[in-house]
Every structure is written in structure tokens, then in C-alpha cells.
């Protein structure tokens, strides 16, 4: 379901949160901070800005970075974001590890996430330190 590539003691770790829900972003930020030391967290409530940011990052081949992507957003949904990212990201070599983070309990959403080549896993909201543990420590 997920890959482990970091531990709680490593150097600054990069996160990108894409969600229009401010409370959800706050909860995610708190959970990440509980699990990682001095993480770098980029928060985007507008998915289009996030797509631009990732496009730039992919160009310069940055350090590994974890993306938490919400599905239910106006204008661009999480699936729309993935459609755009597919065109600029190479699933085999990219440093971006994308996780769908959604409140949806619809099995169709989980299946769709599992089948998507850019998606590493599906995390059911709310994001908690316990879930961080599950994702990153195995």
C-alpha cells in the first residue's frame, strides 16, 4: 500500500498539501509535525497553484517530496490534478510521492486511486499521527 522512504530523525522532509479545506490542512500539518522533525510543508488551497509548483519541482529534480492530494475541490478536483500531473511527471523516476487523502469512503474512489500509476496510496481523513506512522514506518 505504501513505500517507506523517510524516518523521524532525517533531515528536513518535504510535504505538499493540496486541499481547499483549511481545517483539514491544519490537521494534516499537525500530524506531520508530530511525526517528522522540521518538515517543509507547502499548503495549496488552489489546486492550480499546486500543479504549477510541482511542474517547477519536476524540472529541477528536487529532493523527495510527499504530496497529499484531496479529491473534492471546486474547479479542479483531485482527479483533474492527477490528469494534469500525468503529462509532466514520469511515474518511474519522479521524486514526488503522491497520496490521495480524502474523506470519501466510496470504494470506487479507493479503487480508482489504487489503479492510478501516479498514486502511491489512499489515506482516509482525518490524517492522524497514527496514520502517518502506518504510511511512513510500515
Amino acid at each position: 500500500m505504501h513505500k517507506s522512504h523517510a524516518n523521524s530523525t532525517s533531515a528536513p522532509t518535504c510535504f505538499i498539501l493540496i486541499d481547499d479545506d483549511i481545517v483539514a490542512n491544519m490537521l494534516a500539518q499537525m500530524s506531520i509535525k508530530r511525526y517528522f522533525n522540521e518538515p517543509v510543508i507547502h499548503i495549496f488551497t488552489n489546486p492550480a497553484d499546486a500543479v504549477n509548483f510541482i511542474t517547477e519541482g519536476e524540472k529541477y529534480n528536487n529532493l523527495p517530496c510527499t504530496v497529499f492530494l484531496d479529491i473534492n475541490m471546486p474547479i479542479l478536483s483531485g482527479w483533474d490534478v492527477l490528469d494534469k500531473l500525468e503529462k509532466i511527471i514520469n511515474a518511474g523516476t519522479t521524486a514526488f510521492n503522491i497520496y490521495i487523502v480524502s474523506s470519501s469512503i466510496d470504494p470506487d474512489d479507493k479503487t480508482r486511486a489504487a489503479e492510478h500509476p501516479l498514486v502511491n496510496g489512499y489515506i482516509e481523513k482525518p490524517l492522524t499521527p497514527y496514520l502517518m506512522q502506518e504510511v511512513f514506518a510500515g
Partner: peptide, 18 residues
Amino acid sequence: VSHNLRGHVSNIIGMAAE
């Protein structure tokens, strides 16, 4: 149900836990 209802519920759960 998946997003609008569950979205608020998940926020409440998350905040209550904090």
C-alpha cells in the same frame, strides 16, 4: 455522503482527537 457529509465528520473527528 462520501465528501460533503464525511468531510465534515472527518474534520470533527480529527479536531476532537487533537
